[in-house]
Design a protein around this nucleic acid. Structure first.
Lengths: 339, 339
DNA sequence: TTGAAAGCGCTAACAA
DNA sequence: TTGTTAGCGCTTTCAA
């Protein structure tokens, strides 16, 4: 059996008795082709099992259907939800997603932007506002729409959709105070820019209320995890045993803190209030259920794609170019302190 | 300011006073170019900020540096770890990864394989052995190496790396019996082929030991989650209140089961033994710590890429084309029953 | 070691 | 509505 060559546009054209460009049009904008040609062409495509060559089409048209997505982590549940939102919105379109993982390194991010741009993507989605200067430069001159996600506040390169991390931390701090906790601490891991912003505002609110105690601020540069949450609470309780509540900068830290509390026979919420961040599915199913800040992760992904597609189809058509999707506090048992 | 066109190979060639092909060679195989030319070309590339156009190179060479990765889920922590392994192995090479999400649909998977093949990928990684017939056909004639991952047993289309799900379930069942549990149940969600295989073997082992009771087999087609774990345990204990142990087909089910046990004031491991599957980071940090079956998820991703790259560089060079990385049971407090 | 010529498979621009 | 022509930016082939 002959090693059969993949069929090309020309093969389809000669089989259906039309020109190559008519075949191309049948595929890309069938309404511009007479029904007669269309049917012939479609039959030929079917018969040959023709699929267009993406490289050739990209080269000739100077553009692709690739949407580049740059995230700092693939293991963080937060970005898993963003991915779901992105894929959900892209699924019914002709675009497809290519993921880059910068591993929380601005330099790696810059390199990845360069790689993405080599393929002339239709659009780019990048996490955060903390690109290097060269990276920002690349994004500005990318020649395609760009959406920055997961944060809100600073002016975007092109468009942005996210939420305020300062507002989130304020909600958490006020909630703990309103619940009557007077010696609140905070656990934070990884210390990326968004985490730092939450940490700082939490401190501020505590300071305003006169309850800030730096012994209760415990951080680590390591990635956040349940194990790290346990360790950080341990450290916190060593430094300040009378701590009565803790804002965990991530839900996995919160779960770890809860487990460590169990182990120490500390009662949650009586002895220790716990508030998480992100409101992952697990938090509501812990025992006791965990109070957390709900973040619109899935929506961020969806919305980013929608903005991108609108802008690709009609440049400068997107009016709202900087979108705050907001956060909310979901109060549950872990802070429901009996008065 | 002129909207500057992206520099091309020809631009670099004329600036450095050599031909386009010499520039191309300087980039792809610098050892074939005289040092003199090389230096001139590199200077010109630097000066112009030239980066090769991927579409043009793909079209001319009939191949790309894309490694396609097809997973059934992006939110499942299991695949997050596989992704990490894949990215880890790819990072230092000239290849890059493109992810497709089939959402546990064989038809969607088939469509995605078609999309991937249009770009003439350098290699393909797909989860499982349960492709549709047309999909298998596509993979066989893909014209690039293919690695099937996450399972072991059936003959692969080309290559495979994974582990035995039957062996895993056998380990779990025997462990529960050895710990002295006599009324074991099983919780399972999603019911993909690998889950079903674990379920079946668990049943078999229980039957052999004379302790199989179908009231203790509780499943759901829904995706697995902590909340679902709670619900399934609730259902199990309604149907068979005297159940004394449970094998959870996923760690999040196990965590949910643990939480539900806490809520009911059931003591783990005394009243109820719990064994999970996958050994995610959380399990060892629960309280009590959860026994689980450790699966080599990260290694599967890494190894798949290594096999792929070896095969791309030198076809038919990979000797071991069907690799079982094995599983192991990590016994922890959740099954440590006092005799 | 270097280069000239041809062409990968498609689409843009224009013409009929 | 359809077709012709030219070319996207690179690599392959072959020759020098």
């Amino acid at each position: 059996m002959k090693p059969k060559r993949r069929p090309t546009l020309d093969d389809v054209a000669s089989l259906s008795g039309v020109s190559a460009i008519t075949v191309s049009r049948t595929i890309r904008s069938p309404e511009k082709v007479s029904e007669r040609s269309r049917l012939k062409v479609q039959a030929a495509i079917e018969k040959l099992g023709y699929t267009p060559d993406l490289a050739a089409s990209a080269l000739a048209s100077k553009s692709t259907n690739v949407i580049g997505l740059l995230v700092p982590s693939l293991t963080n549940n937060v970005f898993a939800d963003v991915l779901r939102g992105v894929y959900d919105a892209v699924e019914t379109t002709r675009y497809f997603v290519q993921i880059g993982n910068s591993r929380y390194s601005a330099l790696k991010e810059e390199a990845l932007i360069r790689v993405f741009l080599r393929q002339k993507p239709a659009g780019l989605i990048v996490a955060g506002f903390d690109q290097t200067d060269p990276a920002l430069n690349l994004l500005e001159t990318a020649g395609c729409p760009v959406v920055q996600i997961m944060d809100f506040g600073r002016p975007p390169v092109d468009m942005a959709v996210g939420f305020r991390h300062d507002a989130a931390a304020r909600l958490a701090a006020r909630h703990l105070l309103e619940c009557g906790y007077r010696r609140p601490g905070i656990l934070a891991a990884r210390m990326d820019p968004r985490t730092q912003s939450r940490l700082q505002v939490f401190r501020e609110v505590c300071a305003e209320a006169g309850v800030l105690d730096e012994r209760r601020v415990v951080t680590t540069p390591h990635a956040s995890s349940v194990g790290v949450g346990r360790q950080l609470l341990e450290l916190l309780l060593t430094q300040a045993p009378d701590t009565d509540a803790v804002f965990c900068n991530n839900d996995d830290l919160a779960i770890g803190a809860l487990m460590e509390a169990h182990r120490r026979n500390l009662h949650v919420p009586e002895d220790l209030g716990i508030c998480g961040f992100n409101d992952l599915e697990m938090t509501r199913n812990m025992f006791p259920s965990l109070t957390s800040i709900a973040t619109p992760r899935f929506e961020v992904g969806r919305r980013a794609v929608e903005m991108l597609l609108a802008e690709i189809e009609a440049p400068d058509s997107v009016a709202e170019r900087n979108v705050d999707l907001g956060v909310s506090l979901i109060a549950r048992d872990s802070t429901r302190r009996p008065r």
